Simulated assay, not measured.
Amino acid sequence: METTVRVLPDADEVRVIVCAGEFDQEAVGPLRSATDEALTDPHLRRIVIDVRELTFADSSVLHLLVRLLHSGRLVLAGPLPPQLARLLEVTGMAAAFTVAEGPEAARVL
């Protein structure tokens, strides 16, 4: 599967960033760019990362998600893929993240 990042049009001060494929230190650049742009937008009340099609994530993705978590605006749109759920579990971070069942549910949290 190709690694892709898509930024959906903002709606109701919410930006959804869709991730698909394998994300590691080499491939995380486009996701980092999309999230950096979202973090600097003061009009956004919520940043949703749709991880349903993510097949692999390493510590570089975890670091990026933790940085977003500190903004207080992050919601993950799941369900979480097994590999990402395991990464969050073994690092003790699973309980720190808000996970909604899909992007539409994440938009309204």
Rank of each mutant, 00 (worst) to 15 (best):
D36W: 06
A106V: 07
F23P: 04
R73K: 07
L84C: 02
P30S: 13
T91C: 08
V66I: 04
S33A: 14
V16H: 09
A106P: 15
D50C: 07
D50P: 08
L68K: 01
G72T: 04
L88T: 06
T3E: 09
L8S: 12
L74K: 05
R86W: 12
D41F: 02
V99I: 13
Q25K: 11
D58F: 02
A27S: 14
V61I: 01
D24V: 07
V75A: 12
V66R: 01
T35C: 03
L109R: 14
G72K: 04
T55I: 09
V90E: 04
M93D: 02
E22F: 09
F56S: 05
A34M: 10
G78R: 10
D50W: 08
D41S: 06
R67L: 11
E101N: 14
P82Q: 03
G29M: 13
H70L: 14
E13R: 13
A96I: 03
C19P: 07
P9I: 09
F56I: 10
L74Y: 03
R6D: 13
L31K: 00
V61Q: 00
R15W: 00
T91S: 06
H63S: 06
E22M: 13
L84R: 00
A106D: 11
A38L: 01
L84F: 05
G21T: 08
